[in-house]
Simulated assay, not measured.
Amino acid sequence: MSKRTTSHNLNERYEMVIAILEERCSINSLIKNEGISKSALKSWIRKYNANGIEGLKESRGWKVYSDEVKTKAVEHYLNTSAGLESTCDTFNISSSSVLRKWIKLYTSGKGFKSTSRGSQKMNTGRKTTWKERIEIAQFTIANDQNYHKAEAEYNVSYQQVYQWVRKYKNGGPEALKDRRGRSLESKETLTEEEELQLEVKRLKQRNEYLEAENGLIKKLKLIERRNRRGQDPA
């Protein structure tokens, strides 16, 4: 069951939300005068916009979200410039703290724990070698961090790719080693030939991406020219 976070009743919540939406007062003034947090006010506005006055009623239980909604919300946040609040608005999520928990679970590869009975684990991918992880991280970066493309290309999970890219950016190839237990990877090194092969692959992947992007831009410009010709008076 959810806990009551303020002493304001339904009518008071409604009056505050309407006052903000009608621009009769600001969020900051309500925070000061009503002794309420900014996050609570924004949450009420989001709930009202999504479900009307029903959304402002006290919840009598946990709101249940499907794994599909969780995945879409997290990927939307990770792959776009949308912030936490904006993503919550888009997917009608009760609070940014809920979304933060999903992001943490998603990027750690632990999967989502259902808010209803039972739980459903996300795809955890497959085992990989240190050299594979380097190649996958470089491939993803070369393709403007297209995690989905790397996921399909190398048959690994989105979460794995996300973690590898983050580690690679922060610490380079060494950060991708498995240092758990007696893993032999901690002592593994790359030969000059292997480093060269990886660099050649990285450059090739980047060139392929740029060529595809340039080709798309050319096609769009061609379509625009055709459209302009069609609009010109005879």
Rank of each mutant, 00 (worst) to 15 (best):
M122K: 00
T71H: 11
L196K: 13
K204Q: 10
Y106T: 06
E213M: 11
Y65D: 05
W44F: 14
T189N: 14
E185A: 10
L196D: 05
S94G: 11
I27K: 05
R126W: 00
E135Y: 05
K47H: 07
I136Q: 05
I136P: 03
E15Q: 11
R229Y: 00
K177N: 13
K47E: 14
K104E: 13
L196M: 14
G35K: 01
T71R: 12
S7N: 12
K32R: 13
R226K: 10
S108Y: 06
L176E: 09
E85G: 09
I53A: 04
D89C: 10
R225G: 01
S86C: 13
L216T: 14
E193C: 06
S66E: 01
N9I: 08
I20G: 03
K63W: 09
L203I: 09
E211S: 12
S97Y: 05
S116Q: 12
V74T: 04
H8C: 13
S108T: 12
Y77G: 05
I93W: 08
Y106F: 15
V64Y: 04
V156Y: 01
H148A: 11
E185R: 05
Y158E: 02
G125C: 04
S96K: 14
Y77V: 06
K177Q: 15
E151T: 15
S66L: 03
Y65L: 01
E194C: 07
G55W: 13
T87D: 06
R100F: 14
L99F: 13
Q163V: 12
Y158C: 01
R46D: 06
C25N: 02
K72P: 11
N9V: 06
N28C: 05
G215N: 08
D89M: 13
R179E: 09
S39F: 07
R13E: 10
I217W: 14
G83Y: 00
D144Y: 03
E199Y: 11
I45H: 06
E185D: 08
D232C: 11
G181R: 03
Q159F: 07
S96Y: 08
R46Q: 00
E34R: 07
S108D: 07
Y48V: 09
E135I: 01
V156P: 00
R13N: 04
G230I: 08
L78R: 09
N155P: 00
C25M: 10
Y65P: 03
D89A: 07
T191S: 14
M16N: 05
D67N: 10
E208R: 14
N146R: 06
K149C: 05
S81E: 13
N214Q: 12
A175R: 11
A73D: 08
Y162M: 06
D89P: 07
S157E: 03
K201V: 04
L184S: 06
T115A: 09
S7Y: 14
E132I: 06
I18M: 11
E22D: 06
E75S: 04
E22F: 03
T107N: 14
S86D: 15
T6Q: 03
E153M: 15
